[in-house]
Design a protein around this nucleic acid. Structure first.
Length: 892
RNA sequence: AGGGAGUUAGCUCAGUUGGUAGAGCGCCACCCUUACAAGGUGGAUGUCGCAGGUUCGAAUCCUGUACUCCCUACCA
């Protein structure tokens, strides 16, 4: 038998076990199988990224689900993949190039892309390696990258199909523009931050008069692009000006004074400047009033020729200069402090400028309808349910999706412009000539697609679509999608739309949303705060299992997760506890021979001790709890049930109970107990496996009763484990309860009176009925050992003088635990202890009798509730009187 | 501004249909008792945000209110 060290060292176990699993092919799913399918598509991490705590949480949940289903006999597929992450990756590589003093434009598109692919080759596997350390049981042979041939074909098919339906269109729109990245970004990529800025009041002279209209703005430089000023049509102050012009300060252009109910008369001066090309609200006004759209910015967010003398300045510089010049011309009435929300690019951090440009859009009007319906009808469930409303609300107000990005890294838009006839050819395979006029002088669109466009196709593009593959038939719709609620709109909603449009079915049956990982104080993890935690560090320090368990024991769907290293340390201790309990067991199983093959070996029920039957009963309850919890994705309930069973039932009591048996003479009692021990350990490892795969597999392999591998053994539940669980009994549960109570009573007296464990004491237990007496007599050994007794007397007769007395009641059986204290302790301590109990009993009795004397309670409450109270009252009264007697004796 | 979630022991959180408040960590005391000091045993700790209401009985249901957080939108 292998000798186990007295501490669990994950470093010696994890890599070895993982390699074995992978080589043995345990993670593989079958394209076709008689087993029911269960599929999870991994939210693809950024290809050049590294594993952070958020991934670790996300993956742990998925791995737990997959392992559980795999053990339940499913054809379980966990399909891994990685995302090219357009903006993120391109920025990283650009930053690297900058160190070498090269810009991407200098390099040119082709060369630059080569560099990015190099980068991908170098770092693309890093995150996969880190996932292996966490224990992720992905089917690695199926790993897909968004720019692989398969997904790229899917992207082209979807793009062309939607284009032909007119659900993808090109148009000039106002979009969110990131200056540093020189690209459009979607609404969702804009983060609003509260900024303490100013609001400036600027005077616009009314043409042909000496009157001024005062306009308030937070972005004074945009006045260079003003097309009008606007007032409320019913605002008496300005009625006379409507239709006239004002002179635009600094540039001297004439612009009209228009009227629109959009203006709030109460706010500011009641006059609004209209800059249709640089403000989303003004854009709408510009459209309805047919105003010119004057773009004053370049792609780099610098002033262009329309800005006249300010050309070439960056926005902030232009603002400064504009203000100076206005002041010099006495056109700046005042400046007031003002807090406003400013949109920032979530990638570059720069202020987002609304920018007018030609972009590609997905029309969402029709796509969103079924995406809404399937959630309303429950075809796809969102967990937690509260996010359903959020999802539906967003689907209701959804705007068209800007999918073109002015980047190089990504899926290039499959559209070609004809130099001759300007026709746009959109095609799945690169065309050689214009489909309209046949000219070969065609140019492909320079832009690439938003990364989320390919992500939206992920549930079917990873399974071979547009080909009709077996795996697609088997695994689509996937079973569940696990992801953070922060990408519900970015990703989940768009997968839903695309899946329904192209597969005519939902992409997943269930969406499990979790929150963001925060630090132990609830702050977001960030580099600047220095509070981010590297999961790989945690794995190295405490082991992957401990990290996984700290997630699973505390995760609640939808809620943010506060990570605490201290807690992880606690679960590391739990792993050690499991390790040592097994170590003890194996030592005591050295002379054990498995009577028949494997898990079928069952002991003779008639010969089982009460502890054996009791632990089996507890095991059965645990299996039930765990199964119910996992079915409802309540991982923490399952994890907690396992923690309690292993530590508080199995280790604290069962192992202690069987020590006398193991150290005893042997024979059939020992044989039976050994068999129970071996069987329970076997169940413990299997139950723990989806949560803590490494340690459970490692120990499982050392058990006398085991199968080929824990990872593919059955997951125990009340149905498939019936044969063993039938050996449990409620009578035994009652008996063990008595023993536990008696032993606790002895320990309590010892503890409160500070009697050293080194001193063995004498105890008498006086049972009030034959049933209890029998239990005590049969288990005398256990009580003596665990109470550390010199002598145990089980009898109703005996002296009570100078004795501690603890009344014990279990299920109607009453007894007293009597401990002579003469010479052992200060009697006053014991008097205090008893007085404390008396106080508590008095309080309880007062409450109970108060309630029972209320006739409304007796009349209205459920019978069993009243009955239980009556019983409790009686019991308490009996205990009280025995304590009062004991007190009298001690005080006399 | 609209929507959502939350407020329970020092900290992080459980608490399914209303029936005398739970866990982990931390804390205190004693103990290296032959699996484990990453351990054992015992112990202390809460007017369940506040105010009303329904009920024999409310952490749990209803109404109001305070505070916190998140999401969506955003006024020049």
């Amino acid at each position: 038998m292998t000798q186990l060290s007295d501490r669990y060292t994950p470093q010696e176990v994890e890599d070895r076990i993982y390699q074995w699993w992978e080589q043995a092919g345990y993670f593989k799913a079958q394209d076709q199988s008689t087993k029911p399918p269960f599929a999870i598509i991994l939210p693809p991490p950024n290809v050049t990224g590294f594993l952070h705590l958020g991934h670790a949480l996300d993956h742990t949940i998925q791995d737990c689900m997959i392992r559980w289903k795999r053990m339940n006999g499913f054809n379980a597929l966990w399909l891994p993949g990685s995302d090219h992450a357009g903006i993120a990756t391109q920025s990283v590589v650009e930053r690297e190039l900058k160190k070498e003093g090269v810009t991407r434009t200098e390099l040119g598109r082709e060369k630059f892309l080569e560099k990015v692919w190099d980068w991908k080759k170098q770092y693309g596997d890093r995150i996969y390696r880190q996932m292996r350390r966490l224990g992720d049981s992905c089917d690695w042979d199926r790993a897909v990258f968004t720019l692989d041939e398969g997904p790229s074909k899917a992207v082209r098919r979807v793009f062309t199909t939607l284009y032909k339906k007119n659900w993808i269109y090109r148009g000039q729109r106002l979009v969110n523009w990131s200056g540093p990245l020189e690209t459009a970004i979607s609404d969702l990529e804009v983060e609003y931050k509260q900024i303490k800025g100013s609001i400036w009041h600027i005077k616009y002279q009314v043409e042909g008069t000496s009157d001024f209209l005062v306009v308030a703005t937070t972005r004074p430089e945009t006045l260079l692009g003003d097309s009008a000023v606007c007032v409320h049509p019913e605002d008496e102050r300005y009625a006379k000006y409507i239709g006239k012009n004002v002179i635009l300060p600094l540039l001297g252009r004439k612009i009209p004074i228009i009227a629109d109910t959009y203006v709030d008369r109460e706010f500011g001066s009641g006059v609004v400047k209209i800059t249709p090309a640089h403000d989303f609200n003004d854009y709408k006004i510009g459209k309805t009033h047919n105003l010119p759209f004057i773009n004053i910015l370049t792609k780099r967010a610098e002033m262009n020729e329309n800005a006249g003398p300010y050309k070439g300045l960056k926005v902030q510089e232009a603002r400064k200069r504009v203000l100076e010049d206005l002041k010099a011309q006495n056109l700046l009435e005042k400046e007031e402090p003002h807090t406003l929300n400013v949109g920032h690019c979530s990638r570059s951090g720069a202020v987002v400028e609304p920018f007018l440009s030609e972009q590609w859009f997905v029309k969402t009007e029709h796509l969103s309808v079924p995406a809404r319906r399937v959630v309303e009808s429950g075809t796809t469930q969102i967990e937690p349910e509260s996010w359903t409303k959020v999802y539906l609300h967003w689907m209701n107000i959804i705007e068209d999706w800007c999918i073109s990005r002015q980047l190089w890294w990504g899926h290039r838009i499959p559209a070609w412009y004809c130099d001759k006839c300007s026709h746009i050819t959109v095609a799945e395979t690169d065309p050689s000539k214009c489909e309209s006029c046949g000219s070969t002088s065609i140019r492909q669109d320079e832009d690439v697609l938003d990364t989320w466009f390919s992500s939206a196709l992920w549930p079917f593009s990873t399974l071979g679509w547009p080909q009709e593959t077996e795996k697609l038939k088997t695994f689509y719709p996937t079973s569940v999608l696990v992801t953070g609620h922060d990408i519900l709109f970015f990703w989940v909603a768009r997968m839903m739309m695309m899946g329904l449009e192209f597969m005519r079915d939902v992409p997943f049956r269930k969406v499990y949303l979790h929150g963001i990982v925060r630090d132990s104080q609830g702050r977001k993890m960030s580099k600047s705060l220095g509070n981010s935690v590297d999961p790989v560090d945690m794995i190295e320090k405490y082991g992957a299992d401990a990290l996984r368990f700290s997630f699973l024991a505390h995760i609640h769907s939808g809620k943010d997760f506060k990570f605490s290293e201290q807690r992880t340390e606690g679960y590391r201790n739990f792993m050690n506890k499991i390790w040592n309990a097994t170590r003890f067991s194996l030592t005591n199983l050295q002379d054990f021979k498995v009577p028949t093959e494997g898990t079928a070996a069952m002991p003779d029920k008639a010969q089982l001790t009460a502890f054996d039957q009791w632990i089996i009963t507890k095991l059965g309850r645990t299996e039930k709890t765990v199964e119910e919890a996992l079915e409802q994705d309540r991982f923490s309930d399952a994890a907690t049930a396992l923690y309690s069973f292993v530590w508080y039932e199995f280790c604290d009591w069962y192992i202690e109970f069987i020590k006398p048996v193991m150290n005893g003479p042997g024979g059939s009692e020992k044989q039976n107990t050994q068999l129970v021990l071996a069987q329970v350990l076997n169940r413990v490892m299997r139950l723990l496996h989806p949560f803590v795969p490494f340690i459970s597999e490692e120990l499982y392999q050392k058990l006398p009763i085991k199968g080929e591998a824990c990872i593919v053994d059955k997951y125990p539940n009340t149905r498939n484990d019936r044969e063993l669980l039938a050996l449990g009994s409620d009578t035994a549960a009652y008996e063990v309860e008595i023993l536990k109570e008696v032993i606790s009573a002895i320990r309590n007296v010892r503890g409160e009176n500070r009697i050293s464990p080194a001193i063995k004491i004498n105890v008498r237990v006086s049972p009030s009925d034959a049933k209890a007496q029998k239990v005590l007599l049969e288990n005398r050994n256990a009580i003596v050992t665990m109470g550390r007794l010199e002598n145990l007397d089980i009898s109703a007769e005996g002296s009570l003088s100078k004795c501690a007395v603890v009344p014990v009641a279990v299920d109607g059986s009453q007894m007293q635990v009597i401990i002579p204290l003469e010479g052992l302790v200060d009697i006053d301590e014991e008097i205090k202890r008893i007085q404390k109990s008396v106080e508590k009993l008095n309080k309880d009795i007062a409450g109970l009798s108060g309630r029972l004397s209320n006739e409304n309670f007796v009349k209205n409450a459920a019978e069993d509730v009243v009955e239980a109270d009556r019983k409790m009252l009686e019991q308490n009264k009996a205990q009280l009187s025995s304590l009062q007697d004991a007190l009298k004796r001690l005080q006399s």
